[in-house]
Simulated assay, not measured.
Amino acid sequence: MAISTLVIVILVILLIGAVPSWPHARSWGYGPSGLIGAALLVVILLALLGYF
């Protein structure tokens, strides 16, 4: 269970860093934050179902 918690924390940090309101990510659009958000959702679902 520790590895899934670590992956979730890392994905949350990446999601916060990829939000388009930050100056370094303003030109990226919503693509990176959407992809990281989708990956976070999949990891959370797998962790809740016990597969990860």
Rank of each mutant, 00 (worst) to 15 (best):
V19F: 06
P23M: 01
P32H: 01
A39I: 14
M1A: 13
I16H: 01
H24N: 01
V7W: 00
V43H: 10
V9L: 13
F52A: 12
A2Y: 00
L48H: 11
T5P: 00
A2T: 12
P32K: 03
L35Y: 05
F52W: 09
G37S: 09
F52Y: 07
G31A: 12
L11I: 05
G34Q: 02
S21I: 10
S33T: 15
G34R: 03
V42M: 15
I3P: 01
A47E: 09
A38D: 07
I10M: 09
V7N: 04
I36Y: 05
A47H: 12
I13A: 15
I10Y: 03
S27R: 10
A39L: 15
L6K: 11
T5A: 05
A2S: 12
A2C: 00
I36N: 07
L14W: 05
G50M: 04
I10H: 02
G34M: 08
L46M: 15
A47C: 10
G34D: 08
I13K: 09
A38E: 07
L49S: 14
G29N: 12
T5C: 03
W28G: 01
I36V: 15
V12N: 07
L6D: 11
S33Y: 02
V7A: 14
V12C: 14
Y30R: 12
P32Q: 02
